[in-house]
Design a protein around this nucleic acid. Sequence first.
DNA 1: ATGACCACAACATGTGGA
Length: 281
Amino acid sequence: MAGMRIATWNVNSIRSRVDRVVDWLVRADVDVLGMQEIKCTPEQFPFEAFEAAGYAVELHGLNQWNGVAFASREPMTDVEVGFPGAPGFGAPLEDGSLPREARAIGVTVAGVRLWSLYVPNGREIGDPHYVYKLEWLAALARTTSEWLAAHPGVPFALMGDFNIAPRDSDVWSMEFFAGRTHVSPPERDAFAALLEAGLEDVVRDRVPEGLFTYWDYQQLRFPRNEGMRIDFILGSRDFAELVTDARIERNERKGKGPSDHVPVVVDLALAPEDDDRPMVF
DNA sequence: ATGACCACAACATGTGGA
């Protein structure tokens, strides 16, 4: 294949939105979609709608909370659930460890390593969920750094709902977010550590400033355009060099029954295999 | 019009989202 279209989307329950998601996949001609907040187990996942549209699915879902997945028209290999060092959260298990939540799944497609991530929310600054969020992100940065060092030259990307607005322009009002999560310095430092590990935001410079990926359902946030940019595709240098275009699909927030997040899309140029493509001199 | 929360489990209302 000469190119591949990759997207990430927090779908906020796949069972309540499968028709919208699959319709968009086909309409937008997406090859690989990373989903977050599927909110279901494998037994509950609506595989049929994806398969009928030509997509295979790999997922990590434990219960009605969180849950991440990939849908792809190209073969997925090396499926990995959770990442090394990811902390758990909640009441300790019998062995004293904490339960691991369904927040990370990795796959390889056409030689590109991709992760679909749902970063913990954090709730309020200082809350145990906030501490967990920061520890989870620190572990992610460590593992990313180690993986990149061990796999030189392999295009790699983390994509998903990071629940962090790294710049003031990524929220509709810094006054509104004063003292709240998503914009606090420790969260922004945790995001910066991912960039220091060797990743870059491959979408930002290709979309307008102030174009958000999330708008709360409440208080007319979408029609007032009071949103946040918290969904990202962070690629390694080898990944970034393949990117030819990027989009935020704002229109998917419109209409009946939308997710509160919209898809983020990148197009990759892949080296053509020596197959059916005529050589052009 | 882009429009005044939504999804889950469960069946009343609590939890979680951000």
